[in-house]
Nucleic acid binder design. Structure first.
Lengths: 247, 247
DNA sequence: CAGTGGTCTAGACCACGTC
DNA sequence: ACGTGGTCTAGACCACTGC
């Protein structure tokens, strides 16, 4: 026996079907109408509409009603950049990390500006391989103040993000980044054992902990590494923040 | 007078504060406990916990309880792909669209499979320029059934997505896509007036309207066109749906 | 077994928008 | 004035986990 589906699920199905079959093109049934026609309480009918709103299918306005979202606030799409370890797991390869350089330096001017510090900064140059094939090169800078001790960590085994978040208790709350496609420069091509000009992704990423810059990193990544995603268009992420005002 | 905040908001604040001050490090108060200590009904206490779960702060297990999420399901980041017109507006250039081909064809096997149709499909080949400089080349296929009439539209003026959504009432509810970095092939390099091998983004995107494939498109885009984003890390989009509360 | 979360009911009051 | 969604109550039954 399959367990009885929740009633609000049944109602959701009904509503979604009604939208896709163009029975509902603008105004949706009200909570009271649904409650009556399905013989449920208003709270149950309401839940169906609430979930459709959260999923972006529908908009609700107090005093007016519930309406099909015509121009869904969709972003045309987005690409997730997943933790590299998970990525390796997904495609079932072994991730290795080689630290090419780790030290404290006077930051170049532009780095000092990004990290908003006059102090020294940690610099790390790291090469990642999938099954011994070099796939990503990273140059990373970290503010010395809470992060200098990262030089004593085992960076070849542990994720830098995990160290920052879990060991140093630095919640990474804001990310600002940019991505372009480039051809490999000769030095990096040599690291990758391929010819210069080979197509690659180039990322620049600045990460904050509560408006304080923590680390800036530049990644170069082989271009055939595909970013894949399947998702439902949602509210524009520009509206994010508001949800997380942990004031 | 500021209006009284909802009770569940007060409870949420209490819980969030308790987590950040490490009062709650694992198990959270149960619904009944919260209901009693705050003098509210269980449904109200429940709502506070429900929202925290949707926001990724907390995990709930039937029969066991509610627990602080230790490794927040953060995405390391993502890149939005914005409507091309908006992109052009942002950087203050003029977007022009040239239709290189528009017709009905027997679909190649792989396209027929993606679009789940045995029928003919519309094919469009389009070149986009920013201020007369070619920046994007698109080959698009659309299922003939609701989309054949798109051949009579003015595709050089109007966004295809807008036509599908607003004119044909096809809400684009699911997107599946992939992105790699490539070097330009000779034919496309000729279209772009640059040398073959020039770094570029290559997108493949399949768009659905309620689980029915509508259009499949392959974009090639000059690599120096940067994707930028600033955002707050959130739940992994794999857990979508429940993620968004009302603005 | 007692406690948890998941669902659900049949009421209620409110602020709001439309007429 | 009426209908809408937003909030809230005080109960209820269930399936599930832990002891």
């Amino acid at each position: 026996m399959t367990p009885r589906p929740p009633k609000y699920e049944t109602i959701k199905q009904f509503l979604v079907h009604g939208i896709s079959s163009k029975t509902f093109t603008d105004a949706m049934p009200s909570e009271n109408q649904l409650a009556e026609t399905f013989g449920v309480s208003r709270m149950t009918a309401r839940r169906a509409l609430d979930e459709l709103e959260r999923e972006g299918t529908v908009e609700r306005f107090p005093g007016r009603g519930t309406f099909v979202r015509k121009t869904p606030h969709y972003t045309r799409g987005f690409f997730r950049v997943r933790p590299f370890r998970k990525w390796a797991e997904d495609i079932n390869v072994t991730l290795t990390t080689r630290v090419l350089e780790a030290g404290l330096i006077e930051p170049p001017h532009e780095i000092a500006k990004k990290l908003q510090t006059e102090d020294h900064v940690v610099v790390l140059r790291i090469l990642n391989c999938f099954d011994d094939k070099p796939v990503r090169y990273a140059v990373r800078y970290l503010v010395a103040d809470p992060c200098a001790r990262i030089l004593e960590e085992n960076l070849e085994q542990e994720s830098i993000h995990d160290i920052l978040i879990n060991r140093y208790r630095l919640p990474l709350t804001k990310i600002s980044q940019s991505m372009t496609a480039v051809g490999l420069t000769s030095p990096i091509a040599r690291l990758f054992n391929i010819e210069p000009g080979y197509p690659a992704f180039y990322f620049q990423r600045l990460i904050f902990s509560y408006d304080r810059p923590i680390t800036y990193v530049e990644y170069t990544m082989r271009g055939e590494m595909a970013f894949d995603d399947t998702f439902t268009p949602q509210l524009d992420p520009a509206d994010f923040g508001a949800l997380f005002s942990h004031s």
